[in-house]
């Protein structure tokens, strides 16, 4: 019995030592991607959300484009910090990528108490895939039938208008804080656990309004149960046609969260180019675009350079809002 255990242990020890030899043997790198060497795309969330869906759809296309296996690995935890940390810790060789969502990633490295091992400089942006713009909505029979009267009511009754959002520090909550700052009002945010429970509370009349992503509103807007007052896009949100932006109504809120693919900083430029080019070709295909739009996601492709610029701009605009929210 003891001998059996020791034998198992010895096997294990031998197996740990072996990789050294292999690692030395394959140190000579070839062009990217090496044939048959799999690329791992980390999704820092559990399976089942929009990010996961886009990752799986894109990975399947990337596999055909590059002729190497592309595996999706769900590494949820700590509001995506676990999965992003494991990507940042991996070798910057292009074989480990991750789906990165803004503003989530900013809430990691701008909040000192989270001890994130990364900042913006730790990432090599590769391609931005899609954007989500946000909106505020009220029940169809609400006394506030337009955005201006809604804001006026919030101004007259500070901290009285109850607004459902998807949870503490989620994008709808961040948007609500930006709206409060821009319009000089105070709402009473009620933090739900995701968009669906927030919508249930809105329809049930437990809150006066809801802050959420465009696709959160599509079913109920179509059936006339709710009224969407304003969107945070620069113009119109394609998911919510005909609804004016907050900017056009004199409240300066511009808030598009973005999801893209990034690698650890230090990834060779040629490798970045290969991945960026492949993703650009995928994003141009109709089948990829149709799959995303069907799911309620608006594609918005950007190459590595534009993505990096967008990231910086986003951090400069939204960062101060987040800092103020942490301090509270």
């Amino acid at each position: 019995m003891r001998r059996a255990f020791l034998a198992g242990f010895a096997t294990a020890t031998a197996a740990i030592m072996l990789p050294w030899f292999f690692a030395i043997a394959s140190a000579q790198a070839q062009t990217f991607p090496e044939r048959g060497r799999p690329i791992t795309l980390i999704v820092p969330y559990t399976p089942g959300g929009g990010v996961d869906f886009v990752a799986r759809t894109t990975a399947a296309a990337l596999e055909r484009e590059l002729s190497v296996p592309v595996q999706v690995a769900n590494r949820p935890g700590a509001g995506a910090q676990v999965g992003i940390t494991s990507m940042i810790r991996s070798r910057p060789d292009g074989y480990t990528l991750a789906m990165i969502v803004k503003p989530t990633v900013l809430t990691h490295y701008l909040d000192a108490s989270r001890n994130a091992i990364y900042t913006r400089a730790s990432f090599q942006p590769i391609a931005h895939l899609y954007s989500v713009s946000y909106a505020v909505a009220v029940p169809a029979n609400s006394p506030y039938q337009d955005f201006r009267s809604f804001i006026a009511a919030a101004r007259a009754n500070p901290e009285r208008i109850k607004i459902a959002d998807a949870g503490l520090m989620t994008a709808p909550h961040v948007m609500l804080s930006m709206l409060e700052r821009a319009a000089g009002v105070r709402f009473a945010p009620v933090h739900f656990n995701g968009g669906a429970p927030a919508m249930a509370a809105l329809l049930g009349g437990h809150v006066e309004g809801m802050s959420g992503g465009g696709s959160d509103f599509v079913p109920q807007l179509g059936s006339g149960q709710i009224k969407v007052l304003a969107v945070t896009a620069d113009g119109e949100d394609p998911l919510l046609p005909g609804i004016a932006s907050m900017r056009s109504m004199g409240v300066d809120v511009l808030f598009n969260t973005g999801t893209g693919i990034a690698a650890p900083a230090g990834t060779p430029a040629t490798t970045v180019q290969v991945l960026e080019g492949a993703l650009a070709r995928i994003a141009a295909t109709e089948i990829w675009q149709r799959a995303l739009i069907g799911y309620g996601i608006t594609p918005r492709f950007m190459g590595a350079r534009d993505y990096a610029a967008f990231w910086l701009d986003f951090e400069q605009r939204v960062g101060p809002v987040l800092q103020a929210m942490f301090a509270r």
Partner: peptide, 10 residues
């Protein structure tokens, strides 16, 4: 493999 090879005999 090692886990099973260790546990089964033990």
């Amino acid at each position: 493999l090692c886990m099973l090879a260790t546990l089964l005999p033990t």
